[in-house]
Design a protein around this nucleic acid. Sequence first.
DNA 1: AATATTGTTCAGCA
DNA 2: GTGCTGAACAATAT
Length: 265
Amino acid sequence: MPELPDVQVFKQYVDATSLHHAIDAVYMREPALVKGVAPRTIRRHLKGHALASARRHGKYLFLDIADDPDWLLLHFGMTGSLDYSRGSGEPDYTKLRLDFRNGYRLAYINKRKLGRISLVPDVDDFIDAQGLGPDPLADDFDLGAFRSVLDGRRGTIKGLLMNQSAMAGLGNVYADEVLFHASIHPETPVGLLDDDAVEAVYETLGQVVQAAIDARADVEQMPSTWLLPHREPDATCPRCGGTISRIEVSGRATYFCTQHQAGRG
DNA sequence: AATATTGTTCAGCA
DNA sequence: GTGCTGAACAATAT
């Protein structure tokens, strides 16, 4: 379930480990994950080159290939992750492996085939072509930008928060977390949110995303007052002592507190 | 053993 | 056209 915070942590991980090492070998283990380009083409673009920088938009990670016009695109689906280490063998479910000249290797791990490995010539063009909305961590994502995201939308606030073409990055878990802290019922129609509620969602969104990144997107390190460690039916709300309920919204399991998130539904 | 899980895509509908 | 909803997919855990 890599969402924005998880992918941001992956980006920081790549920044700290995998840049500026020449790539001696490339192993592609799962052609089904490679979209829009032949696996051998990816190998050709990477081999002998280094990774120059990393960029993230929403749940997508882009790695700039030094001395090459293209970027390596990684999407993690629900079960993807990265591992940088040395030694013989590789982690289970490794689907792409880059062996660096320093003896370390970067593994893209994915238990399932939901995800994407590709090459893109231009990140901004890809974002446009994919129809991705703004990223909430972008410098210019202010309250006005968030209002634009909501403008003219129908449906529920939770559905909107998960809609990558409205705003890119939140998935099921963090959409719930934001609404939990903003004290808004997940099925509230977007059009019924008043100015205060819109501002509350905007502020909460920034705080939750930043705090999750600070916790390295690790549930173990999330504050116990968050919803995340309590995502089960009939749990006790860590905020108000109410009851956590499970419903389905936009086809996804949704957890919320029936007491302090009762309003505006 | 049947069911829940969730990001994206796409068919279908208002 | 548009945008929203829900089914389908993958494959593992429970």
